[in-house]
Simulated assay, not measured.
Amino acid sequence: MPIKVAVGMSGGVDSSTTAYLLKKEGYEVIGLTMNIAYSDSIKDAEKIAKYLNIPHFYVDLRKEFEEQIIKYFIDSYKSGYTPNPCTFCNRIIKFGLLLKKAQELGAEYLATGHYVRKVWDEEKKVFLLKRAKDLKKDQSYFLAYLTQEQIEKSLFPLGDLTKNEVRKLAEEIGLFVSDKEESQDICFLPDRDYRKFLSRYLVEKKGKIITEDGVEVGYHDGVFSFTIGQRRGLRVALGKPVYVKKIIPEEGIVVVADREKIFSREVYAKNVNYPSGMPREKELEVKAMIRYNMEPQPALLKILSEKEIYLTFEEPQWAITPGQILVCYKDDYVLCGGVIEEKEN
């Protein structure tokens, strides 16, 4: 009997092509679409499933998404962090609850349209996450918090394809989403207005904008409107551009500094996850990312404890931001991911 695989279908070209490829390879494919946020794409997923002649199911995860991801998003801003909800949604919702639903329906694997490669390390007897063939579309950054068990039960058929190849294939097989525009937004913020979203949950308080030496240079309407490295919207006149260097939410203070002060080489991260296990070495030369869509940069990684790391980049990096995810790579394989925290002295 063919192996049963559930495909997480969003209604986009990537997940639709993933379902086609697996069916072509001989798997028994079913489609699963999460109902978690405000998306009009889920109807497209149903149409694609019908076109491919595969069973399709909706999975209502709105309550869990609200309790786990949206709460994390709000709490992060409340604490002065700039969160990365997609990373934790992948671990908790997509490769957690959706994978569980897939298994309940008899599927052995959950496949997604992520651009990443799953590789078996025969020596270590573990699965590794490797950057995609299409480095411009590589999404391994967002999967750094997956567990080994989750990776084992996952399939990523697009890892060895480029985005252009996927679109061309989708067009050739008649998928109406072949030229569908990609979503660049956080799924629950389709208008990209996170301030408007946060205003439904948090009460903004006016506060001070100060320089590093404590001089008051302006006022703001609420700290949730700011992120590290921000210049626009500061409304301060110092005769030169200044940027947000630090946010102190409990005091309602935003600290600004000159551009060169926003660069840093050192990163401290906690709640670290090793998808393929901790390395034996406590110091390693790696390449690292502090945000998505940046080129991984050379750095020295020091493992302080099972859940703490300290990283020093060879070259200063712009706006290292608490709450964002630090992801370290060794030879294009995901080594670890951690939440960036304020550097401890």
Rank of each mutant, 00 (worst) to 15 (best):
R280N: 10
I247F: 09
L128I: 10
I92Q: 06
V255H: 06
V7H: 03
Y219V: 14
N293G: 05
G233I: 08
L335K: 13
R192E: 06
A111E: 09
K168M: 05
A37R: 07
K23T: 12
D44N: 15
S140V: 01
V244W: 01
Q150E: 04
V272Q: 06
V217E: 00
D14I: 02
F142N: 06
K63Q: 10
K71Y: 02
I42V: 15
D193E: 07
R192V: 10
T227F: 10
R200V: 00
K245A: 04
T312E: 13
G174P: 10
S15L: 10
F197E: 01
K136G: 15
E172L: 13
M278T: 02
Y268E: 12
L97K: 15
G159W: 10
P298S: 04
Y51D: 04
N164E: 14
E67N: 11
D60P: 09
H114Y: 10
G207F: 10
V126P: 09
V334S: 08
A37E: 07
S183N: 12
Q68A: 07
F127E: 11
Y292V: 10
E295A: 13
G323C: 03
I320T: 02
K246C: 04
V327F: 06
T321K: 03
G207D: 08
S264G: 15
T112V: 02
G277T: 08
L105T: 08
I262Y: 01
K168T: 13
K133P: 14
T162P: 05
I210F: 07
I70S: 02
I30R: 00
G12S: 06
E28C: 11
Y109A: 05
K287C: 06
K133Q: 14
N90L: 12
K261Q: 14
E295D: 11
V126T: 09
V339H: 05
G239D: 03
K4N: 13
L128A: 05
A6M: 04
P316R: 04
